[in-house]
Amino acid sequence: MLNYTLRRLLALIPVLFIVSIIVFMIIHLTPGNPAFLILGEDSSPEAVAQLEQQLGLDKPKVVQYFDWLRKIIVGDLGESIYSEEPVSQIIAERIGPTFSLMIVSMFLTLIIAIPTAIFIVWKRNTVLDPLFLSGSLLGTSIPEFWLALLLVLGLGVTIPIFPVAGYAPITDGLLGWLHHLLLPGIVLAAVEIGLIARMLRDSMLDSMNQDYTKTARGKGVKESTVLVKHVFSNALIPTTTVIGLTVAGLLGGTVIIETIFTIPGIGQLLIDSIHRRDYPVIQGVVLFIAIVYVIINLIVDLLYAFLDPRIRYD
């Protein structure tokens, strides 16, 4: 297991290197000049050229990339063009709201998706099964921004149950923290519940006719016990893969949701930085998201050995 983990960690290096190249090219090949945006429309070409030189934007793109890469290797993501603060510090200040939103949405997803899937498998020969399939398809098809605006209008404006904007840190109180995150958490969870529940339901149905399930029934084990102890446990591996991808994908989903609900997290930071053409912050945030994504995938792979003792990485 240790050797496998080390090999996977080393394999992350070329992946992140390719990601850094793609991120840098996409950002620097898009129209827009940070120096011009900072100085304003009335700035002279001489002033813009002087600021570009100070920011290092007058250098060839290849030189700019390797300067940035050299800093990344030593753990320096650079400094923001606007605030002149270290990018790593800016990201660290925004991690809390984003991870809080991810925790709330993932908690809501799992407590709804898992019991629903088990119940549907139990009632698999009833009218509930096709209704569930239709509902799960509808849930995964709803655009997040549309659902967010609908819930803001319904539960934030028409019936003011939840705040429609802002964030309260957990240090100010658990209830206030949860009150601000519950509505955006519902939006993120609504899209993922159908996917995870559908995957778990399909995996459990595949396990229903396996030999170990038939043996358990032959021994007189109750159907509810068969579902939970035998079928559910063996259906966790493919479902865990989807859950891992969902957790990693939530970082991308927070970009839209944090903007709509004005949550000062990584997503809103990315949007604000794109508007300002703050290249170092954009590059740092996207690279941070990529690192989190590949680490979560590694953790999911390692979990397989704990979920199924037959799996070995030696």
Rank of each mutant, 00 (worst) to 15 (best):
R276N: 12
S273M: 09
L183E: 06
M208H: 06
I120N: 02
E46S: 12
K61V: 10
S105V: 08
A248K: 01
Y304M: 09
L298D: 03
A189Y: 10
S233Q: 04
I299V: 14
P115V: 07
I73D: 09
E84P: 00
A148T: 09
I295E: 01
I142Q: 02
G173N: 05
G96S: 13
I120G: 08
I95Q: 04
I295G: 00
H230P: 08
K222S: 15
N297V: 03
P115A: 07
I111W: 08
I26F: 12
Q54T: 05
V221E: 05
D202E: 13
N33T: 02
A113Y: 11
I22C: 13
V63G: 05
I274C: 09
G284C: 07
R94V: 07
M102G: 05
T171V: 12
T126S: 02
I103N: 02
I282G: 04
T254V: 06
I90A: 13
R7H: 06
I260R: 04
L302Y: 05
M1Y: 12
P143N: 08
A290S: 03
P309E: 10
P169Q: 10
I103H: 05
P143D: 03
S20L: 01
I274W: 13
W68T: 00
V63H: 11
P31V: 03
I296S: 06
R198Y: 01
P45I: 06
P115I: 03
L270S: 05
V300M: 11
L182Y: 09
P97M: 08
I193E: 11
L303Q: 11
T140G: 14
Y65E: 12
L37W: 03
G78Y: 01
G135T: 02
I311A: 13
F107Y: 09
A168D: 09
R277D: 00
M1D: 10
A165R: 14
I289W: 07
I72H: 13
A248T: 05
A11Y: 15
M199E: 14
P130H: 02
L10R: 12
I170M: 14
G267P: 00
L251D: 13
Y293G: 09
L149I: 05
I90S: 15
S83I: 02
L9E: 00
S83W: 05
I299L: 13
T98S: 15
Q283H: 15
F99E: 13
D206L: 07
I186T: 11
K71Q: 14
E46V: 15
V285Y: 02
S83N: 10
V242S: 09
L150Q: 06
A189G: 12
Q283D: 00
E52T: 06
E85Q: 15
E258N: 13
